[in-house]
Structures are given as structure tokens and as C-alpha cells.
Amino acid sequence: MKAFKNFHPVSLAVYFLSVLTVLMFTKNPVLQAEALVGAALFLGALQGVGTLLSDAPFYLALFAMTALTNPLFSHNGVTPLFFMNGNPVTLEALLYGVSLAATVIGALILCRCFCDVMTSDKILYLAMAASPKFSLVLSMALRFIPMLVKRFHRVERAQRTMGLYSGKSVSDRVKFHVRVFLSMIPWTLENAMETSASMRARGYGKYIKRAEKIKNGKNVKNVKCEKKKRTNFSLFKFTPRDAALIFVCLLSFGISLLGEAFFSVGFEYYPRLGALRLTAWSAAVYAVFGAVTFMPFLIEVKEALVWKYCVSKI
């Protein structure tokens, strides 16, 4: 059930960015509903229905809180429902609160999907595009941190058997941890030196000397130092499938924003609720954005069905 994860990191990043941006900018209830339901189904497909159900109360509570807070503070709108402390609670403000809540919860759920899908190696790959060196440093940090934690625990346990500062008082406990923590610093430096030796031994940061001798002279000083370009390897392959995903995402992103700005996809709550008009353009936006938001879920479901079908054939 991890079909969507297998897309290229760039495609995945484009997907999340495009959906999140549209969700953040739109006030159109149809688009919001599509994004919210699509994201929820996506999360369900990724982490199982059980996780989704167990998390549902949290999301519902947050949803209700956000939706109800807005009308308490915003009194815009022309349709008062009732008065509280002399202030009108309006229908428009209430509905705007619901819309706000849909945006917040939708973005939250999408971010959880993002964390699940974008594993560290995908993030590293994306960072590589920005700066290969930064990406390498990040990778080394990801290697180093678990090692440091393990070392910390090892020293902690060893120190405990020495019977030092093992009283129950707060000062003893603080002292105990501080001295273990301080001992990590020289260890880190020592470790860094050995790691850098290992990097150099494998040719990192090596200058390739290219002697460009002048034809007639024997000027040894005239040696041009040129750093050989380091390449960056990754296991990801960019396939037509990835290109297609990017294309669809950009298409939905483009027409949604254009529709929002010019073609009657925009929606207003204040002072009075706008009307949802169904034009050719808006229908196209609803269809394409809907397709994009439901796609991860559909892909996972399709994959599951294909798998079942294959198994039943065996």
C-alpha cells in the first residue's frame, strides 16, 4: 500500500506544494471540501483506517474550536443569528469559521501525509538540488545523531555502575547528566577527526593537479589546481509517470489560481455570502483539483486491488 511513496521526490514535492498552496488561498467551499476529504482518505490509506479513526476526535475537536471561535470575535456579515453580550453572531462569520477550520485541518492532515511520504532520503535528495554540500552535511548529521545518542546511553550506564552522583536529590541528578553530557564533546571531536580521515581516504575534497607545462619552458610552478567536480548519486529515477504527476499538479494549480482570480471560482463570505456559480471554467477547476486531491487515495486503492487480483490469480 505504498504506491504513492514510490514517486520521484520532485514530483511528490510539487504535489504537496501545489495542493497546499491552493488550499491556503482558496475560500471556495467545494475546493476546500475536496482537499479535506482527499487528504483524510490519503492519510487513511497511508496509516490505516485505525489510526485515522483514533485521531478523528482530535481533528474534530480542533475543527469545532476553530469554527466556533471566529464568530465570537468577528461580527461582520449581514445575517445575525442571535446577539451575545450585545454583539451580533452572524451566519457569515460562522460559515467563515468553518471554512477557516477546513483549511487548517486540511493543511494539518496533508502535512502528516507529507511526513509519512517524504522520508529522510527524499528530503536529502531535494536538499541536494538546493546545495549538494548542505545535503551531505545533513546526511552526515543523520548518521551522527543516533551514534551520539547510543554513546550517551552507554556512558550513562557505565557511570551509573561507578556509583557516582547516584543519589535521588536534584543536584545529584543534574550533576550526573551534566558530566556525561560534557564528556560527549571531546568524543564528538575525536569522532569527527576519524570521520574526516575516512572521507579524505576516499578522495573527498581532493584537488586534481593538472600540470599544464608550457611547451618550451619547464616551469614547475605553473601547475593549475582544479577541483574535480563531485557528482551526486541517488537511487531515484525520474520516469514518465513522475512527469505526468508534475504535469497534472501544475495544471490544477494553474487553472485553480486563474479561476480564483478571474473566472468565478472565487468565493466571498463578507459582507454577504457569495454564490457558487457553475461555469465551464469552474467545473474544470473542480474536476481537475478533485482528481489531484483524490489521486493518492485512488492510487493506493488501485494498487491494493491489483495486488489482490494478482494474489487470487496465483
Partner: peptide, 24 residues
């Protein structure tokens, strides 16, 4: 412990070759 530079096995294997400037 100290010989290993990166976080993934495949990346570790590729590290030296990246330094040599080989293509993917």
C-alpha cells in the same frame, strides 16, 4: 563506527565514487 560517513548503506557505497566524479 568512525569509517562510516553517511546515513544510508547505498549512499556510503556511492560516497567514494561521487568524490571521483562519476556519472549516476
Amino acid at each position: 563506527e568512525c569509517g562510516i560517513v553517511t546515513d544510508k548503506v547505498w549512499h556510503e557505497l556511492a560516497f567514494g565514487l561521487e568524490n571521483m566524479g562519476l556519472s549516476t
